[in-house]
Computed example of a mutant assay.
Amino acid sequence: MRDHQRRRAARRGPGALPRRRGRGRGPGGLRRRGARQVTEPARVPVLNIANVLTMSRLVLVPVFLYLLFAEDGRQFWWRLGAFGVFAVASVTDHVDGNLARKLGLITDFGKIADPIADKALTGAALVGLSLLGELPWWVTVVIAVRELGVTLLRFWVIRHGVIPASRGGKAKTLVQIVAIGLYLLPLPAYLEPLAQVTMGAAVVLTVVTGVDYVIRAVRLRARGKRAVAGA
């Protein structure tokens, strides 16, 4: 065996480096599978810009409520401040999701905290407006029941898969934000019907998308059960 190794070294010529043992290992000792290196995926830190924005939205909720109820919610500048905080918090909802997807910052913490922050902001605004007597309680209850029901449905079907957000759901969220924003603004009397019509559209989209989510959840769960039974 040693004679064979000396003959191979002689063919490679003087000064040739000895070959290292350990097949299937590339530079740095990384294992190779075929022609490709197999590396461990990098762990995404929980403390990243996307999650910081999500948490800032939660922090802004009590600030928003303070501004909304200051001076019994009737003073122009306080209401304008409440609208500003709500608008900034709503923008962070769009920004943190985009950053998480583009920069690969999606974490389990973010998946849980993001919808909680969204519902906390929207729920605080709706309840606050109802407490001030500016929004009928039935509107707040309908939207709150829908959001809570969808959250429970997510847990109900989570072992079978995830239902992606539909265009209707995205439209519902946008119209809700616009409607709440209009109610928060100290609008002149002749523009109040605009806020009412927009909120009406938000309620309709809330109910319709809620029913659609129930149907898709039931179908997903049924498919999951059939797959398990046929395995």
Rank of each mutant, 00 (worst) to 15 (best):
L126I: 09
N98Q: 15
V142W: 00
R159Q: 15
W137Y: 12
V162A: 10
L121I: 01
R146Y: 06
A117F: 00
L174G: 12
G128S: 05
G128H: 05
L99G: 00
V150E: 04
L105Q: 13
L132N: 10
R159E: 13
K102H: 15
I177Q: 05
I177S: 02
D114M: 06
Y183N: 08
T122I: 11
A171W: 08
V178T: 03
F155R: 12
V175T: 04
V127K: 13
S166E: 07
H160M: 09
F109K: 04
L185C: 05
F155A: 12
V145W: 01
T140A: 13
P115A: 08
H160T: 15
G110E: 05
W137T: 15
R101S: 06
L121H: 02
V175C: 03
T107F: 07
P164D: 06
Q176D: 04
A120D: 00
N98C: 14
W137V: 15
G169H: 04
L132C: 11
L103W: 13
L131F: 15
V145F: 07
I177H: 08
D118E: 04
G161P: 01
A171T: 10
L148S: 05
A165Y: 05
A100H: 00
L182C: 10
D108N: 10
V162S: 11
L135W: 12
K111D: 14
V157A: 05
K119E: 07
A144G: 06
V162N: 09
V141Y: 04
L103H: 14
K172T: 07
I106E: 15
L99P: 03
R159F: 15
K172R: 10
V150N: 08
G149D: 03
T151Q: 03
A124N: 00
F109E: 05
L153K: 07
R154N: 12
G110D: 12
D108M: 08
Q176A: 01
L152W: 11
G110P: 04
N98S: 15
V145T: 00
T151M: 10
A113G: 13
L121T: 00
S130F: 06
F155K: 14
L184S: 13
F109M: 07
G128F: 06
L121F: 08
V178F: 02
Q176W: 09
Q176Y: 12
T107C: 07
K111H: 08
L129H: 11
W137E: 05
R146I: 03
L182A: 02
K170V: 07
S130D: 09
K102D: 12
W138M: 14
I143H: 02
L148Q: 11
L99V: 02
P164Y: 00
L126E: 04
P115T: 02
I143G: 01
L129G: 12
W138G: 14
V162R: 07
L105Y: 11
A165N: 02
L184D: 08
D118I: 06
I106W: 11
I112K: 06
V178W: 06
I106S: 13
G133L: 11
Q176N: 07
L105H: 05
V127D: 04
V175D: 02
I106H: 14
A113K: 13
V157H: 09
L135S: 08
V145D: 03
L152N: 09
L99N: 03
T151N: 08
L129S: 03
L174K: 09
F109T: 14
K111N: 13
A165S: 11
I180T: 01
I112P: 11
A113R: 02
T122K: 04
